[in-house]
Write a protein that binds this DNA or RNA. Structure first.
Lengths: 342, 342
DNA sequence: CTGAAAGCGCTTACAG
DNA sequence: CTGAAAGCGCTTACAG
């Protein structure tokens, strides 16, 4: 059987049907140029377009206008539970504005980041949302050099002159610490995230600063290389080998916290009876775990949505120079934290 | 300060540098046409391209070739934990073949499905992976009519003549039932997923068939409208109001199971002491919940990967007609199931 | 208000 | 093996 492919209907087909020039059809169908055309013709064109089932060829339009109404998103890994809500926030906002989003996973590997960037440039994306930034990031530099509109999300870079939507880490860290201190903890350890990320770095810094203000020891820190469960587990064991006086742990994020809890379970330590622990992010299902993890809720969907709004402003030329927007996190107390047992 | 935008380097720029016609550059850079050009010229072109930082404009290429090296993915909601692994499987496989993926959320609303399809057609996607199919789906019909290459994933349609990658539901359901029956359960209830989806429908059917084979009551069924926690909770209450002789529940998926467990907790019923319960899918973190949910593991990543391979074959014209591929699920026993208490 | 023309950056059938 | 030309489906500056 021969597969007969329907020929796509173009602007010319509807022009023929209405008996006008195809440029007139283009104008009649364009929201911004519609008013250059007489209402009567606009009506006829619209009817004809509908009748023929016309829909515009975005590819052709993109080529001509050198823009694509698409934005790219760079995430480390879509399967990491922090990202789906962020991405959904991006997608919903972008879509509402008529933009398509293209997401790429980079697995925190620079080659993949670079490939993804190339691909997106090849597709003439109008802008980029970057969730993979290191504090010193050649990819970000490249975007700046190439004048690609972009917004960093969650993580930012050390150079401040960029658009970014991040968390007020000082506030986040202080709310956990206030909570732990109110529970009489005096020896509070920290499983720090990667120090080459702004989140890992700033959380660690905010924590040691605040601990010092309270005259509490601030050297119970173990640093990880990745924000993963396995790294959390590893770091906890290393920490414990070095020191066992702490009664609470602030983990750099939820996955690290889960890893710590795994390590504790393995050696028979109880949470929160022996050690209290808190996470960061508030990924899904934490409330169903045993124990339910106390954490700092990061407004993931809202960050995605906000970053997209910012990006669209830049694309439309309505941005007033780079700004970093700090969103408020919120402590969520569950039952992995309790009064210090000694 | 004036923002100077770098002019993009095109095929003509590298042609000028090498002093050949731009069509020669096009050929030299095309993997399939490269051999039409003398090796010496190819070398020179490649060097020039590299020197100028040339990368192809996929948009232009797409317009000319009327294909885009992009595939679309329709999911109900990226934030539903079943989907990230599926999508990642799709992305990895597509990317390895040089394809970009565009994902759209439809929230199981036909308008959004239709909009997403339009958008993707406008972007000349080469094919579609559909995770949103109902048993009778106008969107699927539309794809067939418009000759859009597509593969259904997870859910399929009643008409059999499509490409689909699904689960062997009979096998999955039987493995849970064998497990439950071996635990002496004789009154097994079912919280069924939406009957307009193949998954909801086939699991319910497989279950009642197998129950009958074992001469066990098969009428303890409550149907839901959506695969959500809230629906699971609602259905459990309704079921219990009608009948309280069951000692085990097979839920249509994990979210429904979690909803049931919520409802039980609310009224002080214990899992598995009072009632055993099993899910379906094996979404993340189930093993960390209390109790850890027994479930049927669906190979999500692999399904994504497999569906993409199938789609690429179709796109390349290497497919031998429609086929539905049934993948093997695997029972994962955790502690939400135990010996029947009566 | 509308038309005719040019062109976005590629690819490819046709020549040679 | 290489070049010259045409064209994919739009948009838009230029005329009128």
């Amino acid at each position: 059987m021969i597969r007969k492919v329907k020929r796509k209907v173009t602007i010319r087909d509807v022009a023929d049907l209405v008996d006008v020039h195809h440029s007139t059809v283009s104008r009649a169908l364009s929201p911004t140029k519609r008013d250059q055309i007489s209402p009567a013709v606009v009506k006829k064109v619209e009817r004809a377009a509908k009748k023929l089932g016309y829909y515009p060829n975005i590819v052709a339009s993109s080529l001509k206008q050198n823009r694509s109404f698409a934005v790219g998103v760079l995430v480390p890994d879509l399967m990491n539970p922090v990202f789906p809500p962020i991405i959904r926030g991006i997608q919903d906002t972008a879509e509402a504005a008529g933009f398509t989003v293209i997401t790429a996973n980079t697995d925190d590997e620079e080659v993949k980041e670079r490939d993804a960037l190339r691909m997106m440039q090849g597709r003439s994306i109008d802008g980029l949302i970057i969730a993979t930034a290191r504090r010193n990031d050649p990819i970000v530099e490249e975007c700046i050099e190439n004048d690609i509109p972009f917004v960093l999300i969650n993580r930012t870079v050390d150079r401040g002159d960029v658009n970014a939507v991040v968390i007020d880490e000082d506030f986040g860290v202080r709310s956990v610490l206030d909570h732990l201190i109110s529970l009489k903890h005096t020896h509070i350890a920290h499983i720090a995230g990667p120090q080459h990320t702004s989140t890992g770095f700033h959380r660690a810094k905010a924590l040691s600063d605040y601990l010092r203000i309270h005259n509490l020891p601030s050297d119970l820190v173990e640093t990880t290389e990745k924000f993963t469960i396995e790294e959390g587990r590893r770091a906890f064991r290393k920490l414990l080998a070095r020191n066992n006086r702490f009664t609470a742990i602030v983990a750099g994020n939820d996955l690290l916290a889960l890893g710590c809890m795994d390590a504790m379970r393995e050696i028979g330590l109880l949470v929160p009876e022996n050690i209290s622990i808190s996470g960061y992010d508030d990924i899904l299902f934490l409330e169903r775990m045993s124990p339910a993890l106390t954490t700092v809720l990061v407004p993931k969907y809202e960050m995605g949505s906000q970053a997209t709004k910012t990006l669209l402003d830049i694309i439309r030329g309505e941005s007033n120079g780079p700004a970093v927007l700090r969103m408020q996190p919120r402590l969520v107390i569950r039952n992995s934290t309790a009064v210090a047992y000694r």
